[in-house]
Amino acid sequence: MSEEKILDIRDLDITFQTTAGAVHAIRDVNIDLYRGETVAIVGESGSGKSVTMRAAMGILAKNAVINHGNIEFRYCHDDGTAEKVDILTKDKKWIRRHINGKRIAMIFQDPMTSLDPTMQIGRQIMEGMIWHYHTPKKEAYRKAVQLLDEVGIENAEKCMKAYPHQLSGGMRQRVVIAIALACNPDLLICDEPTTALDVTIQAKIIELIRRVQKERGLSVVYITHDLGVVAKVADYVNVMYAGKIVEKGKSNEIFYDPRHPYTWGLLSAMPDLDTDDDRLCTIPGSPPNLLHEKAGDAFAPRNVYALAIDDKLDPPMFQITDSHCAATWLLDPRAPRVEMPTELKRKIERMKKEAEQYGGEL
C-alpha cells in the first residue's frame, strides 16, 4: 500500500427531501482511502453505507440535498498528469464522462438489476471501453474475452454471446466484476457483492476480488453488513449507525478491541460454532426512523449501556489510538467503567487463537 490518498471524504452531510418530510441520511461522515488499500463500511440496512459511496460516484437520487462537505478524488490522466477534483462540485455529465466506470467502478449487490437483460454479455463488457476510450470494436472484443478469462469464466467466447438469464448467479456476478474492471479503474466499490449468492460462491467471489485488487493495485471499498466478509478483506473498518460513523479503526482494532456498544452488538451477532450460548445475540429494538431525529445519541434507545447524557448530547469521536476512535460517552474520562459482554470477550479470544493458527491474520 502506498501513502497516496485517492479518496478523501470530509464532513459529508446529506438530506433527502421526501413526501413524508426531510430524511437526514448522512451526518458528518469522514472517510480516507489510500491507493491499494481496502476499507470496509459496515452497519445495518439503512445506516447510510451505500448513500455515502453513491455520493462519491456522483449517482445520488434527484431528491438528495448536500448540506455540506466535500469528496476529493485524486487520479492520473492518460498522459500521467495528476488531478484532484471535488466530486460534489461537478455536474452529472462530467462525472459520467470522466469518473463513472472509468476511474471509479461499482459492483452492485444484485447482478440481475445491473445487467441489461436484452443485451449480450460481450456487448455489455465492451460498452465502457468504446464509450470512454473509443476502443476499436475488434480490440474491445479481445479485451472483453480476456476479462472473462481473468474473472474465472470458462469458455469465455461462448459466454460473450450469452444473455444474463442464461448464466448462474455466480457467473453473473463475475460478469459484473468484468464490466467494472473493463476501463481499468483506480477505485472499486463493492456494494454487498455476495449477498445474493450461496456461501461457497461467496468465498470464490471474495477471493476473486482480492486477487484482482493485488494484480492491478486497486483501492477497494466494501459496503456490507457481514462482518465475516470484513474480517477476510479489510485493512480499515468504518462502523456506521443512523448515517454517522460511530467507530473506525484498523481491522484488528475493530475485531479485537471494539469500544462502541453498537460494534459489540454487531460482533456478538456473528454466528460462532464454539459459543456457550444456544442462541444468537441480537441488538434490541430497531434502527431509528431518520424522519424523526432525536436529541443526543441515535443509538441510545437500543443501548443497554446508555448514560443520561446520551439522551441530551450526541457524543464526539474519542481517540483511542492514532488509528482507532469511537463516538460513545463511555470513553469520556468521567463515565463509569463499562466492560464489553463476557461472551463477546470469549468470542474475541477464540478469534485471536484461530487467527494465530492460520498465520497471525484475522
Score class of each variant (00 low, 15 high):
Leu218Glu: 03
Glu343Leu: 13
Thr224Ile: 03
Ser268Pro: 11
Gly285Ala: 03
Ser50Thr: 15
Met1Thr: 13
Arg74Ala: 12
Leu218Cys: 10
Gly101Asp: 12
Asn63Tyr: 06
Arg302Ala: 01
His165Gln: 07
Lys49Gln: 07
Ile309Ser: 06
Ala242Gly: 02
His165Asn: 08
Gly152Thr: 07
Ile254Val: 12
Pro284Lys: 10
Ile320Pro: 13
Leu331Gly: 06
Ala82Tyr: 03
Val199Glu: 06
Ile59Gly: 13
Ser2Ile: 05
Leu291Pro: 04
Asp110Ile: 15
Ile206Arg: 04
Lys353Glu: 12
Leu330Ser: 04
Glu44Lys: 15
Val39Asp: 13
Asn289Met: 04
Gln120Lys: 15
Gly359Ile: 04
Tyr75His: 15
Leu290Ile: 10
Asp91Lys: 15
Val85Arg: 13
Trp264Gly: 06
Glu72Lys: 15
His77Ile: 00
Met112Arg: 15
Lys158Glu: 13
Cys76Val: 03
Tyr163Ile: 14
Thr275Leu: 07
Pro185Lys: 01
Ala61Trp: 00
Pro301Ala: 07
Lys248Thr: 13
Lys92Ala: 14
Ala178Arg: 02
Arg27His: 06
Tyr262His: 00
Asn184Cys: 11
Asp186Glu: 14
Lys204Pro: 03
Gly36Arg: 13
Glu192Gly: 05
Lys102Val: 09
Cys281Ala: 12
Thr263Cys: 01
Leu290Val: 12
Pro341Asn: 01
Asp149Glu: 15
Glu127Ile: 02
Leu344Gln: 05
Ala61Asn: 14
Thr200Trp: 04
Arg279Thr: 11
Ala180Phe: 06
Asp332Leu: 00
Leu148Ala: 02
Arg337Ala: 03
Trp131Val: 14
Gly228Met: 02
Gln17Ala: 10
Gly128Asn: 10
Ala20His: 11
Gln120Val: 09
Leu344Glu: 07
Thr263Met: 02
Gly243Phe: 01
Pro284Cys: 12
Lys353Pro: 00
Ala55Met: 08
Asp310Trp: 12
Lys90Met: 14
Tyr163Val: 12
Trp94Ser: 02
Gly169Asp: 05
Asp278Ala: 09
Tyr256Arg: 05
Arg35Thr: 00
Pro336Gly: 00
Gly36Thr: 03
Val176Trp: 01
Ala298Lys: 03
Ile283Gln: 04
Thr118Ser: 13
Ile87His: 08
Glu150Phe: 03
Asn67Tyr: 00
His68Glu: 14
Trp329His: 14
Asp86Asn: 15
Leu280Tyr: 10
Ser219Ile: 04
Ile283Phe: 03
Cys76Ala: 15
Ser50Glu: 10
Ile66Pro: 04
Gly101Phe: 06
Leu227His: 05
Val65Ser: 06
Ala203Glu: 09
Arg97His: 14
Pro288Asp: 08
Asp274Trp: 08
Thr19Trp: 00
Asp274Glu: 12
Gly152Ala: 02
Asp13Cys: 11
Leu148Phe: 02
Met340Leu: 14
Cys190His: 06
Asp79Arg: 14
Met240Phe: 01
Gly80Ala: 07
Cys190Ile: 06
Asp8Leu: 06
Ile6Cys: 09
Ala180Thr: 07
Arg35Ala: 09
Glu44Tyr: 13
Arg172Ile: 09
Tyr262Gly: 00
Tyr256Gln: 08
Ala144Asp: 07
Gln17Val: 08
Ala231Gly: 07
Thr275Phe: 01
Arg216Val: 08
Val151Leu: 09
